[in-house]
Amino acid sequence: MAEIAYLEGPSARLAYAFTPGITPTIVFLSGYKSDMEGTKAVHLEAWAEAEGRAFLRLDYSGHGQSGGVFEGGCIGDWAADAQAVIEAVTEGPLLLVGSSMGGWIASILAKRLSARMAGFVGIAAAPDFTEDGFWASFSDDEKRKVMEEGVTYMPSAYGDPYAITKRLIEDGRDQLVLRAPLPMPYPVRLLQGTEDAAVSRETALALFDHIEGKDVRLTFLKGADHRLSEPADLAAVEAAILEVLG
């Protein structure tokens, strides 16, 4: 495994691990409250190293080994964190691999770093989830609580309750990617589990339909859940990356 290194990001000290190799650099972008020590990130790093390919994983502020407080962050912050690490550490073409929220952040960065983009892989990608997931599911009382008190809490199947802040909701509205053109004129592969309880099939199809590109494919993995971390799921991710790499 690559050693953990640090750089000063836009709002906090950011942790990352970079493996040099053949470009495009594969950049793994993790999910909401996830970090770069997750199963997929570590597995793909080892796989990329065995293939001799450049690979980057990182922690957004408030996540994992980076500084900052999770509850103080938002999508815009985390996208800026990822961009800062990518621009400081890598050169040349990029293949962004976004898991869950990381798929949203990868979609944002695909626009900002369009000149460097060589491919996109979404793993249970969750674009616009603060608006279409959190806010859309809130009761009137929960919406009032967020706007007037600044935070509400949602139960999570993955650990402690999620703190949903007013800043997260309001910033999320500035980062939406399914309401504006999303050009991706390079290979795109989207993977979605049929038993995903966090991201719906409708979301996967909405992203698939919305991306503007000639080489965009969506694959449903029967029986797979949101984590997509079982051996068969990881093999499917590897295959998707290899397809994008051509």
Rank of each mutant, 00 (worst) to 15 (best):
G92A: 03
F70C: 05
A79V: 08
R116A: 07
G102F: 13
A106T: 10
V85W: 00
G68Q: 03
V69M: 05
A118H: 05
L96A: 14
K111H: 14
S61A: 10
E71D: 10
S66W: 00
H63V: 02
L94I: 03
G67Y: 04
R116V: 08
L109V: 12
W78Y: 07
W78A: 13
E87M: 06
G92W: 15
F70Y: 10
G76I: 00
S114Y: 15
I105Y: 04
I86M: 06
G92P: 07
A126F: 11
A82R: 05
G92N: 04
S61P: 01
D128W: 14
A124K: 02
T90K: 02
C74M: 10
A126E: 11
A106Q: 10
G122N: 11
G98D: 13
A82W: 02
F70K: 04
M117W: 12
V97T: 07
I86C: 08
M101P: 08
Q83S: 11
G67I: 06
R112I: 11
G119R: 11
A82Q: 09
T90A: 02
H63Q: 09
S114H: 15
L95K: 12
A115R: 08
D128V: 07
R116C: 08
G119W: 05
R116G: 10
G119P: 08
G67C: 05
P93N: 09
H63L: 04
S61F: 00
A82P: 15
L113A: 05
D77V: 01
L109G: 14
G92S: 04
I123H: 02
L113F: 05
T90F: 00
D81A: 02
C74R: 13
G64F: 03
A88F: 06
G98S: 13
D77W: 00
M101G: 04
D77T: 06
E131F: 14
A125R: 00
A110M: 15
G67K: 06
I108P: 05
A79R: 02
M101Q: 13
S107E: 13
S61L: 00
S61C: 01
A106Y: 07
Q83M: 13
G72E: 15
G72V: 15
D81I: 01
L94Y: 02
K111P: 15
I86F: 04
I86G: 11
A84G: 03
M117S: 02
G119V: 06
E87K: 09
G68R: 02
G73H: 01
A126I: 12
L109E: 07
M117G: 03
A126L: 13
V85I: 12
D59F: 00
W78T: 11
V89I: 12
A118F: 07
S107I: 09
W78H: 07
T130A: 13
A84T: 12
H63I: 01
P127F: 13
S99A: 14
G64V: 10
G62C: 02
E87I: 05
R112C: 13
E131H: 15
I105E: 01
S99V: 09
G64Q: 06
V69S: 03
L109T: 12
R116L: 07
E87R: 10
L95M: 12
V69F: 08
A115Q: 10
E87Y: 03
V69L: 09
L96K: 12
G103F: 06
S61Y: 00
L94C: 07
I123E: 00
S100N: 08
K111C: 14
A79T: 08
S99T: 08
A125K: 01
L94R: 03
G92Q: 07
V69K: 08
S114L: 15
S99D: 10
I86S: 10
F120G: 08
G68Y: 05
A125C: 09
